[in-house]
Lab assay of single mutants.
Amino acid sequence: MSIQHFRVALIPFFAAFCLPVFAHPETLVKVKDAEDQLGARVGYIELDLNSGKILESFRPEERFPMMSTFKVLLCGAVLSRVDAGQEQLGRRIHYSQNDLVEYSPVTEKHLTDGMTVRELCSAAITMSDNTAANLLLTTIGGPKELTAFLHNMGDHVTRLDRWEPELNEAIPNDERDTTMPAAMATTLRKLLTGELLTLASRQQLIDWMEADKVAGPLLRSALPAGWFIADKSGAGERGSRGIIAALGPDGKPSRIVVIYTTGSQATMDERNRQIAEIGASLIKHW
């Protein structure tokens, strides 16, 4: 067993022997301040990774656009098919120029040779490549099948209805392509620590998230040296922004954090800054 596999296998073990965790309302004060600064709703939840206990939450059962955070769930569904012998990570998928959609920095470079399922998941999570996500959605049967996968996990809230990039439209009061912070946090925890996926697939999923290259201005910008984070960000229309993450000190994750916002007129930089400040408060009061 590799060191990384050992780390993920012992996530519940280490967490069980940690000192009790206590909620700190100071972080919620910052979440509410972010709402004021952005002029928009902000949803927040913080779960203990081992027990699933909610440590703090704000608007945990209000719907927010998922945006690209759905790509972690998508690759979880792909990995479940791999575990069941219905898919192979090494299978190569070929596609054409007509398949390319807006923001496809990886797939646009491989029109000639195609990409493997493993490479597509890596591109979808680490670079948020939209064509990679659409190609992977095709392998599982489309958005409705991802929703069905989530329902089978016990998540009857999260739903995907459309493809990239239309799913980022974020129309107010439109339930399409949305989740709730509580539902997303619980589902992410199941994917990373539950028995739904094999140990190898859980490790692969967290490795992809740990290698995320496009979430630097968010929670990662607030992390002290030595902290662990595996995350996936999302951005959408109407001032929408979000991030889902597993993080913790001492090089291992111990909490799940989900943050979503929508309806702001603020710039992307300002949305990023507010999420980073929430992260800084979380870490300060850990």
Rank of each mutant, 00 (worst) to 15 (best):
V31H: 11
H110D: 02
D36P: 13
L160A: 07
I243G: 10
I171P: 00
L38T: 00
T116E: 06
A200K: 03
I275L: 13
I256T: 12
Q265L: 09
K252V: 09
L73V: 06
A40I: 11
A170W: 00
V82Y: 08
L219Q: 07
E277P: 09
V82W: 05
A123R: 05
G114M: 13
P25I: 06
G90T: 05
M66Y: 05
D83A: 08
D36L: 06
G76M: 08
D177V: 07
L135D: 08
T112F: 14
T186Y: 00
T138P: 01
D155E: 13
R241S: 14
G216N: 10
G85H: 14
T147F: 09
E175G: 03
A132T: 06
M268W: 10
D231E: 14
A245T: 09
M115W: 05
E108S: 09
N98E: 10
T186L: 05
D212K: 15
K144G: 06
P165Q: 00
I125P: 08
H156P: 10
S122D: 05
T139P: 03
S68M: 02
L196G: 04
M184W: 01
L55W: 10
K190N: 14
P60F: 04
I243L: 07
V78W: 06
L49F: 04
R162I: 05
L136N: 05
M209G: 08
T112L: 05
I229W: 10
M209N: 02
T179P: 13
G279M: 15
I206Y: 15
I259P: 09
G239Q: 02
V257I: 15
S128F: 04
D48V: 11
L137M: 03
N130M: 11
L120G: 04
M209S: 05
E62I: 07
G251M: 12
D36Y: 12
L135S: 06
F64W: 07
L219E: 09
S240E: 03
M127F: 09
G154A: 09
P143Y: 02
M180W: 06
K252C: 13
F64L: 06
T262Q: 09
E237G: 00
S233V: 15
Y103I: 09
W208R: 03
L89Y: 00
E87K: 05
R220H: 14
T107G: 03
D269R: 12
N98R: 08
N152V: 13
T139C: 01
G234H: 05
P65I: 07
C75H: 00
D129T: 02
R92F: 10
A276N: 13
D83Q: 03
L146Q: 05
Y260M: 15
V78G: 01
A215W: 04
E164Q: 01
D207G: 03
L47Y: 03
Q274P: 13
H24E: 06
T267I: 13
A245N: 12
A170Y: 00
A246H: 12
S57T: 06
A34K: 03
P253H: 12
T261V: 01
T158F: 04
A124N: 07
W286K: 08
H24T: 11
G194L: 06
D174A: 07
T126Y: 07
G251W: 10
T186D: 12
M209L: 13
T139G: 11
A225K: 01
G39Q: 09
G141P: 04
K32Q: 07
A200S: 07
S122A: 11
L100Y: 09
L218E: 15
Q204Y: 07
M180D: 15
H110I: 06
T139Q: 11
L223W: 03
A225L: 10
L167V: 01
E102H: 02
E210F: 09
L28G: 06
G226V: 06
T158H: 12
R92V: 13
K109S: 08
D231G: 15
V42D: 04
